[in-house]
Each structure stands twice: as C-alpha cells, then as structure tokens.
C-alpha cells in the first residue's frame, strides 16, 4: 500500500482531492480522534496513499463507521485500520486490548485515551 515506484510530484493534486468538502470532513474527524492538526494528517495521507485511495476516503469511512464495537469507535480504530489503512488490523486489536487493560488497572478514562492516541501516532509515524 505504501511502497510505490517512480515518484512524480503528485502532492498538489492530492491536496486538491483532500480539500474538497466531503474529504475535508473525514480528515477533520480523524484528526480530532488522533488529536493532531488536519494539516499534519493531510501530510501523512499524501505521503502514504495514492490518488484513487484518497478520492475514495469518504465512502470507506461511511462503511468503517458502522464497523467495530463501542470501544473501538471511541478510539477511532475502524477508521484507522479499515478506512484509512494507516495501521494494520492486528495493531488495532493490540491497542484496544492495552486500552482495556489500562482501564481495568484503574487509570482514568482520559489518560487511557490519550495514551492510546500516542501509541497510534507512533505506529503511524514508524
């Protein structure tokens, strides 16, 4: 998915795709769940995905919103794994398990969410 050949500079055209109305909405939504700026998320997406994938983001998000249980939706895991393909499905399950363990250990809800976010960002950046 993220390894391509002959890199031509497509960043401008990819940005045009991401700026359109529906795409902007889903990018904002995921940026809010990850706790980063939308420009940062756009940069990640432009580096990782091809144009056709970016065009299809809103439709994939529509499907992914209905997937997963409540915890996964709270953390935005279906969006990340299924719609945006930024982290693998196994990693998504791991993050969810760690989050549940932290809640059991008595860590506050907000702290657990922010730690899960950190983990997700690390996985995305790696």
């Amino acid at each position: 998915m993220n390894k391509y050949l002959y890199e031509k500079d497509l960043r401008q055209m990819k940005l045009i795709i991401l700026e359109s109305r529906r795409h902007d909405a889903v990018v904002l939504e995921l940026a809010a769940t990850l706790g980063i700026k939308r420009q940062q998320l756009r940069k990640i997406l432009i580096e990782r995905s091809d144009m056709m994938f970016l065009e299809n983001l809103p439709a994939r998000c529509d499907v992914a919103r209905e997937a997963g249980d409540d915890t996964e939706r709270l953390l935005g895991i279906p969006l990340l794994t299924q719609a945006f393909c930024l982290i693998s499905k196994e990693d998504g399950v791991l993050i969810k398990e760690q989050y549940l363990r932290r809640i059991q250990d008595g860590i506050k809800h907000e702290a657990a969410v922010s730690e899960a976010r950190m983990e997700m960002m690390e996985l995305i950046r790696s």
């Binding site: 391509y4 050949l5 109305r21």
Partner: peptide
C-alpha cells in the same frame, strides 16, 4: 495504472489521476 510486477505477476497497483479534472462542483 502503475503496477509493481514480478515477472508478469502483479504485486501492487496504484492509479494516478488528474488528467481530466473539471472542478464541476
């Protein structure tokens, strides 16, 4: 379509657009 192939076996493909963008919206 940009395909990565091993021999004739396709490993990955990528579609590149932007040739007929209209901006009709």
């Amino acid at each position: 379509i940009k395909c990565e192939t091993r021999g004739e076996y396709v490993l990955a493909a990528e579609v590149e657009l932007g040739y007929v963008k209209k901006g009709i919206e």
